[in-house]
Design a protein around this nucleic acid. Sequence first.
DNA 1: CCCTTTTCTTGACTGACTCAAGAAAAGGGC
DNA 2: GCCCTTTTCTTGAGTCAGTCAAGAAAAGGG
Lengths: 165, 165
Amino acid sequence: MVAVETTWAHRLREAGLRVTRPRLSVLGVLADRPHADAGTIVTVARELHPSLSPQAVYGVLEAFVAAGIARRIEPAGAPALFELRVGDNHHHLVCRSCGAVADVDCVLGAAPCLAPSDPAGFVIDEAEVVFWGSCQACQNRDRQVAAAADPVQLEEHGTRGGAGA
Amino acid sequence: MVAVETTWAHRLREAGLRVTRPRLSVLGVLADRPHADAGTIVTVARELHPSLSPQAVYGVLEAFVAAGIARRIEPAGAPALFELRVGDNHHHLVCRSCGAVADVDCVLGAAPCLAPSDPAGFVIDEAEVVFWGSCQACQNRDRQVAAAADPVQLEEHGTRGGAGA
DNA sequence: CCCTTTTCTTGACTGACTCAAGAAAAGGGC
DNA sequence: GCCCTTTTCTTGAGTCAGTCAAGAAAAGGG
């Protein structure tokens, strides 16, 4: 416990940031939930630090991103997500149904891992890749809903689909 | 002129959509500006159709996307953009400074053009690729600003950088 | 031309995020 | 340990993109 907090404090100092309660709280939440949005971080961090304000969280996250200890991702149609895994140029899988996000290692290595053949005069520093699809849980749920609608196929289970946030 | 409108009308009917003035206006704007956001579309379309409401434009764009005659892209940190180029799985170059967007043909062909080695149980239907960098105009501007700050290098021109959008 | 369905206008509202000012906390120097 | 400066956090108002809902207007088949 103490060791963990010491580690976070160390990481903050390394990045040239002061060690504060809000920053440690946000680091703790991000360690638990690797793709949390600002609202989730506020909610969860308040369990330990009830006076924490949303604006503090926005400020902390901005400082983390500027210092290079967090990365911001913005899948279309969702609020920004933050992750502590930085510097390895990995990409993301996003579920169209529930918004779940998973990491994928970059297939090709260093950033930018891809280069267009005709860059139209642009100097490119990053290739961002988002894979859109359906996560395992949503596939299971959809299969169960389909089975309920057409019981001939999988009648033996009689399962029901629960909404998966 | 009439031929053009007739073509748009035809395209709408093909897609199963009624032909209306707002829809023709939005198509016209998108033909001129291949990566316009909703606000720009409202402003430009009102030159021809002053009573057009923002909500009508949101509705029209939603109908276009649902019908497959437009595509919505959402670069991080910017409002959604719309384009008429659909069905070819192309990708985008986005300028970090001015937000300019250019199309790039997909290097690999059909969608999803990439596949992660470990998809973590996801079924993937699309790989979205965004190349981030600096467009030609912003490179020129930055070079001029640098020259103004350090005149030894390129003194002979004495150019000044204008803020670009 | 009429009638039904779709679409558009008007206007209120939400969610994510930003801006600004003053209060509180961090951490180096003594 | 205490003080002082700088950074950071809290509080509160504001912005921007987009959504929701209800009634008016327009499309297009009969």
